[in-house]
Design a protein around this nucleic acid. Structure first.
Length: 406
RNA sequence: GGGAGAAUGCCCGAGUGGCUAAAGGGGGCGGACUGUAAAUCCGUUGGCUCAGCCUACGAUGGUUCGAAUCCAUCUUCUCCCA
């Protein structure tokens, strides 16, 4: 089966410019393709992971991924899918973030023997000459068409700066340069990138007269159409420092029934018959599929060891009761503990609450249990004796935190 | 550059001098029910040394016994004209 069909079958594919030609191209030999990543944060989140999976599938099929770091384009900020202007970042931050990205990519792709490349568009964008650029590139764009593009539409109401309006030209120019300098023939991206990708395809075709293509992939959304990967603390990060493996595991363990099959197909390498089998489970049995999903995805991001730990911790907590050593742990000093601390202070130190009032509310609403016993008194004090094995605090139904004394 | 309007709690959005820690909705959190799902229902949602106090309606200053509400200046945003 060709990669094209694989990508299609697993549900990555959303739109493509020339289906027949693309299929042929991909079957005829190694193809260089690129995906852009804007280094606006120092870690990648789950949305980027889909793109990484696509690169991995493609590399496995012998094609060559080019990961483009948008060091230059980030100076402008992509208005797609944004209702407000992006924050402008310093060049140092951007470069630093780009480095972090590469580390993640290396887990899924091999960069050996140029089997994958990583380039930064700052290399050609930063010293563009304005007049030359608008003459060479700007003349190929129709403002009328641009304004009709989906990505600018919702900004027409809120206001769109000229700075951001130029983003499309730069991304299109990227494709042109990558084609000229590296022989890149295709651009991939999230479905929100469709307008920008077409712009690049059109520009390159017009300027170089070459056949280049574009494809977009589904954004990870829930069955209700909401973007996935949002947690209470923000995005679901791939960096263990920002989202612990346990939290990460729990996110997938708690996914909606309807999304299980889609996630398995998009986020794991499990064979499709397996995916379909797991996705067809009903009622309580689908929990098994969710475990598989959570385990597989966690394994890919954080490694097998962490995945096993996360799985054991979660099984122990939910099935066998509150007794596990692999729960996120917070350590306080004996000095801080003194002769004992009240529950609100402990919750605060454990990072479970953002204010004492919140803690009060939780206790009053029966949302806190310590070592399996509900705490009902907001003044309850825990002494060093209670801490002999550490305290296992349960907040709500699913959040556990262990507090130990050092 | 000229003119008109807007700024309220996490978000949207009521509120035009005391009854406003501020309606309503969304989201979040907790509880019930469950399958660590969804839906539903109930409660809660500024902070604290919590029957009380403090801080809050873009910013600063003013009027008043009393201001989110009135006045002045400033800031930001939107719209119309150029």
């Amino acid at each position: 089966m060709s990669v094209f069909d694989t990508l299609k079958e697993r549900g990555y594919l959303e739109q493509c410019t020339h289906e027949e030609e693309i299929r042929e191209l991909l079957e005829s030999g190694p193809v260089k393709f690129y995906i852009g990543f804007d280094p606006t944060a120092d870690s990648l989140h789950i949305g980027h992971f889909i793109q990484i999976m696509v690169m991995a599938h493609m590399q496995r099929a012998g094609h060559i991924p080019v990961a483009l770091i948008g060091g230059g384009t980030t100076m402008i900020g992509d208005p797609s899918g944004r209702s407000d202007m992006r924050q402008v970042m310093t060049q140092e931050r951007i470069a630093q973030n780009g480095e972090m990205f590469k580390k993640v990519f290396e887990k899924f792709l091999t960069f050996e023997d140029d089997r994958a490349l990583m380039v930064n568009n700052a290399d050609w964008i930063l010293d563009l000459n304005y007049i030359n650029f608008i003459r060479d590139v700007g003349s190929y764009f129709s403002v009328n068409q641009m304004l009709a593009a989906e990505c600018y539409k919702n900004r027409m109401e809120k206001g769109l700066t000229f700075l951001e309006f130029n983003y499309m030209l730069l991304q299109a120019y990227d494709f042109y340069r990558l084609h000229e300098d590296y022989g890149v023939q295709m651009q991939f991206g999230g479905n929100d990138q469709w307008s920008n990708i077409i712009a690049g395809v059109n520009l390159t075709r017009k300027k170089s007269g070459a056949d280049v293509y574009g494809m977009t992939f589904s954004l990870l959304t829930t069955s209700e159409g909401i973007k996935m990967g949002k947690t209470a603390k923000g995005a679901l990060w791939l960096d263990a420092e920002k989202t612990s493996p346990y939290e990460f595991y729990q996110y997938w363990r708690n996914i909606a029934d309807a999304d299980v099959e889609k996630c398995l197909a998009l986020l794991t390498f499990l064979p499709m018959d397996e995916v379909r089998r797991l996705g067809s489970y009903k009622d309580e049995k689908i929990n098994e599929s969710k475990e598989t999903l959570a385990f597989e995805v966690t394994k890919m991001i954080h490694g097998e060891e962490e995945a096993v730990k996360a799985q054991e911790a979660s099984r122990a907590l939910f099935k066998g009761g509150p007794d596990s050593s692999d729960v996120p742990t917070v350590t306080i000093t004996a000095e801080e503990l003194g002769d004992g601390l009240d529950i609100l202070t402990i919750l605060d130190k454990a990072g479970l609450i953002s204010s004492k009032s919140e803690g009060r509310r939780l206790v009053q609403q029966n949302g806190i249990a310590v070592d399996g016993t509900k705490v009902t008194d907001i003044a309850q004090v825990f002494t060093p004796d209670d801490f002999s094995d550490g305290l296992l605090i349960k907040k709500g139904k699913k959040i556990y935190k262990k507090v130990t004394v050092a």
